[in-house]
């Protein structure tokens, strides 16, 4: 089997034929610098500042009475309180399940669907357009629609009863609710996964696949030994983005179950929201959010290192 030249398979790298001379890079940076200022200011105001405030909150005693004024430094008290509560670990587990469902659904169904849609044609275009529509739907809208569909007297139960299967309490059965909400979130994120994987598939040179066929590889062998290894950088990026998405699993939970029944669907971001804005424990809310952010940073490190490695090559 012929090994592909590595520079041709990285998505988005097709156009980077030659590197500019060092002198040109320096000039470009000097010229581009001022143009970065607005973006840097917006980023500092809308991303960095709230994150710094959140971090401060995690180590402060903040309640409604001193929300405007000075925050008393409380050391690691909030962190210790959060780590010592059963609710945090239950929410961590729920977030883990949520993440796992998204990864499995998006990667497996996403890969199969991307393969099917990789062939150009009118049907593919229609399906892709529909997927973009689903992806663009605000979670509050799609979540509300799914809440009605999954209700006891909703359309899905009506169909199940028509075919002789009894009614299922999708959102109120403690053993099903988290899976149902995760499934809906996976449904909403699937179009993005398909589009990304499809982009990766289309960037694989047909010559490579043809060479594999000439070498006697069947469809499965081609997928396992050629396509998946070449898709690895794309899939790695996708995995990281799915994990990031799962760790902000707030909207569908908020709309569909309010964290219930009981606390079954209370994920980390929902728990942080509830602590901060329902019971007004801003300090513990900030601590939960900071710990979530830390987990995301830890998970994102392989992604950043991977990207740097790819760039180095």
């Amino acid at each position: 089997m012929t090994a592909p030249p590595e520079t041709t398979v990285r998505p988005g790298a097709e156009g980077s034929v030659e590197s500019p001379a060092p002198g040109r890079w320096r000039r470009s940076r000097v010229h581009l610098g001022p143009y970065l200022v607005p973006a840097a200011v917006v980023c500092a105001l809308l991303c960095v500042y709230p994150l710094v405030q959140m971090g401060r909150m995690a180590f402060s005693d903040v309640g409604p009475a001193n929300l405007i004024g000075e925050w008393t430094f409380s050391g690691t008290e909030n962190i210790r309180e959060v780590l010592g509560s059963d609710g945090f670990w239950e929410a961590t587990r729920a977030t883990g399940v949520f993440t796992a469902v998204l990864l499995v659904v998006d990667l497996t169904i996403g890969y199969v669907a991307a393969q099917a849609l990789a062939r150009r044609g009118r049907l593919s275009s229609i399906v892709l357009s529909l997927m973009v529509f689903v992806w663009a739907l605000p979670p509050l809208v799609s979540g509300s629609v799914w809440k009605f569909l999954l209700a006891g007297d909703g359309a899905i139960n009506a169909v199940l009863q028509l075919v002789g299967i009894g009614r299922v309490d999708w959102l109120s059965d403690p053993s099903l609710a988290l899976w149902a909400v995760s499934g809906v979130a996976a449904w909403a994120s699937l179009p993005f996964a398909i589009l990304i994987i499809r982009g990766g598939l289309l960037s694989i040179p047909t010559e490579v696949l043809e060479a594999a066929s000439i070498d006697g590889a069947g469809p499965i062998r081609r997928a396992v030994s050629v396509v998946l290894p070449l898709l690895r950088p794309t899939l790695m990026v996708l995995v990281i983005l799915i994990v990031l998405y799962a760790f902000r699993s707030f909207d569908f939970v908020y709309v569909m179950t309010s964290g219930g029944p009981g606390t079954v669907t209370t994920t980390l971001p929902f728990l942080a929201y509830r602590e901060a804005f329902t019971t007004y424990s801003f300090g513990t809310g900030g601590a939960i959010a900071s710990l979530s952010m830390l987990a995301v940073v830890v998970l994102a490190i392989p992604y950043v290192l991977g990207v740097r490695k790819e760039e180095g090559q």
């Binding site: 709230p50 902000r248 707030f250 971001p269 929201y273 959010a289």
Partner: peptide
């Protein structure tokens, strides 16, 4: 991905 707090502050 950090969490809801930052989002809600925004």
């Amino acid at each position: 991905g950090a969490a809801a707090i930052g989002m809600l502050v925004l």
